[in-house]
Design a protein around this nucleic acid. Structure first.
Length: 594
RNA sequence: GGUGGCAUAGCUCAGCUGGAUAGAGCACCUGCCUUCUAAGCAGGCGGUCCUAGGUUCGAAUCCUAGUGCCAUCACCA
């Protein structure tokens, strides 16, 4: 299907018949804009096998190819670069092949093996913030990309719903809450609970200060502060199943979930299955016992269980405490195994977690491999960089966070302000407008975050906000809307939708668009292999930029030749389809007008 | 200190398995709306690809050393 594959064998044939040597590989690259041609064969690497002047070699191969391959109509050689001109008929035939294809670029038959993608995984003591947004967008998008690449995908998260952090909010609410509820205050549940988490910290700091003033050492004071001890006592009661504590825990977590649901819905992400740490935190202990027998782990004198990873260049890592209780690692081992029990078709998993946990996941994956699970070979930590503010790192306890809900509202308002200034949407009703503003605002935000390579850190400046011009989500959405406008007009003009005549000569811009369309399927595959939505984002930008240039130079509906007009309309439609498909992979919607 | 990541235009980022004169956007400056949506197009300005070595026909890309920033190295999660 891909012309490069056929060209590779043809070039090898050419070289073997001309010089009587067989080449292991042929190097191709798209021809640079400043030269004539479409695909370039790099001659230099052949010099190891074929002695001689690269220009002459290139000339000879070029002549041979023009004779032998109907798709190659011309060539030129500059230095060691053999530029091949591919026939317009080839590109037009390609277009006719995809013209009516639904979901071009997606692989339809799902793999028999499934992939579980974990993302979000918040604590239930505070609202989601900008860091979670990056996590959610990445996880969701990678899940969609894997689906498009033919995988079956389960989206999941593990909710950290137990532990000292949630007890802190509970204690504070009991002490200072006066029975406040989301209903009584009108606050989102996660916000309400988050406020008490902050209230706890404030009180805790006061108590420490008081103790220190009484002459107690800071370190000791941090442990002796009454409110902290109260929280710790509550955790023990929770673990013992104390009814009142469990009831409070359920109530407050319920508020948080209601709040999270709103945020997730606004963000446009979802999950197929939820795991709760309160269910899974005891898992993994029996696996540790198993591993002890197999000799993967060993026991120290105090009874704690460890794994020695020094031969892997890592160190020793504890997997079970001396008192027999689980550590984080124990849980993660247990949870992974549980997931495969729940979904036996799982062949691999993706964990979307910040890069500060690189080491943890390296160890986790190694342990699971050593325990001999087949799926352990296909675990991937989708590690991403932090989102920094100009003021530095976000810290929830110090209030230097960008709240997820607030940010989405801000973006929507900015979109509204710009749209109103441009004044293009008078025909729309208020609800339609609001829907559109949200689509554009979120498009800007999502694209802004996803276009950056996941492993790089992002600097987010709320003052400068996110752009709506240039390499941005709205720019791409705008192009889509423009295309839809053309299609509406084409519909009312009754432009026929017929197959393209492969004998016509293409306008350079038309050819450019066809080349770019051809790259979409491989881009999706590459993005799946590399777990990188950024590749999809950057591809879409290039595509749209190319289309805008085409749009500017070539009249679509003004074309007088009907078959040609039909071709251009359908070409525009296909570009629009690909934009929509690509943006779908990023979780971004596209508007009919804007 | 050990380990890992990052470093490209004033700012935010691309640059695929090494290839031709390192590309976009923002900002700044010029043109283009009586013709398919100007959230657009065309052009200009702007570079020690962190530094120094190495590998080779060729290095932003690979290797080594160094510098800077970040993370991590808990019987915390």
């Amino acid at each position: 299907m891909n012309i490069q594959n056929t060209l590779e064998t043809e070039v090898k044939k050419a070289v073997s018949s001309l010089f009587e040597v067989s080449l292991p590989t042929v190097e191709f690259q798209p021809t640079r804009k400043d030269f004539e041609g479409d695909i370039t064969v790099v001659v230099f690497p052949m010099l190891r096998f074929v002695k001689g002047n690269p220009v002459q070699i290139g000339e000879q191969i070029g002549e041979f190819l023009v004779e032998a391959v109907p798709e190659i109509v011309n060539f030129n050689v500059i230095k060691g670069f053999l530029n091949l001109v591919i026939s317009d008929a080839y590109y037009l035939t390609f277009f006719n092949g995809i013209r009516l294809q639904e979901n071009f670029g997606y692989v339809s038959p799902a793999d028999s093996e499934a992939v579980m993608v974990e993302y979000s995984s918040p604590n239930t003591n505070k609202p989601l913030h900008l860091g979670h947004i990056r996590n959610n967008l990445l996880g969701y998008s990678v899940a969609e990309i894997l689906k498009a690449a033919g995988k079956k995908v389960y989206k999941t998260q593990i909710i950290n719903d137990r532990g000292i952090h949630i007890c802190k909010s509970m204690v504070a609410w009991q002490r200072f809450g006066n029975g406040e509820t989301p209903e009584s205050t009108g606050l989102k549940g996660d916000k309400l609970v988050g406020n008490y988490y902050v209230a706890f910290d404030k009180k805790y700091k006061e108590e420490i200060a008081k103790l220190v003033a009484d002459g107690i050492d800071v370190k000791v004071a941090e442990k002796q502060a009454p409110i902290l001890q109260e929280a710790q006592a509550m955790l023990l009661q929770w673990e013992a199943g104390d009814e009142a504590v469990v009831a409070l825990w359920k109530k407050m977590n319920g508020w948080v979930y209601e709040g999270f649901d709103v945020t997730y819905q606004n963000l446009g992400v979802d999950f197929d299955q939820l795991y709760y740490e309160s269910d899974t935190y005891l898992l993994g202990k029996d696996v540790v016992a198993d591993g002890l027998e197999k000799g993967v782990f060993y026991k120290k004198e105090d009874g704690s269980v460890w794994i020695d990873l020094t031969d892997e260049g890592l160190d020793e890592k504890i997997v079970l405490r001396a008192d027999g209780t689980a550590v984080y690692m124990t849980q993660d081992i247990g949870t992974a195994i549980q997931r495969v029990k729940d979904y036996p078709d799982i062949g691999g998993m993706v964990y979307t977690v910040g890069n500060e946990q690189d080491y943890h996941f390296k160890v986790l994956f190694l342990i699971l491999k050593k325990l001999g699970f087949s799926w352990a070979e296909k675990l991937h930590h989708l590690s991403y960089g932090m989102v920094d503010l100009p003021s530095g790192k976000m810290k929830s306890r110090e209030g230097t966070v960008v709240d997820a809900d607030d940010l989405m509202v801000d973006m929507t308002q900015t979109a509204a302000a710009i749209a109103e200034e441009l004044g293009k949407l008078e025909a729309y009703s208020e609800t339609e407008k609001q829907h559109l503003y949200k689509m554009i605002g979120l498009g800007a935000l999502k694209y802004y975050i996803l276009k950056v390579d996941p492993k790089k850190r992002i600097l987010f400046d709320p003052e400068e906000s996110v752009d709506f011009q240039g390499n941005t989500g709205p720019f791409i959405q705008y192009t889509y809307a423009r295309i839809q406008s053309i299609l509406r007009k084409a519909g009312s003009l009754e432009v026929p939708m017929i197959a393209a005549d492969t004998e016509v000569e293409l306008h350079p811009k038309e050819k450019e668009m066809l080349k770019q369309l051809q790259q979409f399927p491989e881009t999706v595959q590459l993005a799946a292999e590399q777990y990188s939505p950024a590749l999809v984002a950057n591809y879409t930008y290039d595509l749209v930029k190319g289309f805008n240039s085409f749009y500017q130079q070539v009249s679509i509906l003004g074309e007088t030749d009907t078959p040609r007009k039909s071709f251009r309309v359908q070409l525009a439609k296909k570009v629009g389809d690909v934009v929509q498909s690509a943006f779908h992979l990023l979780g971004i919607q596209v508007p009919e007008r804007m």
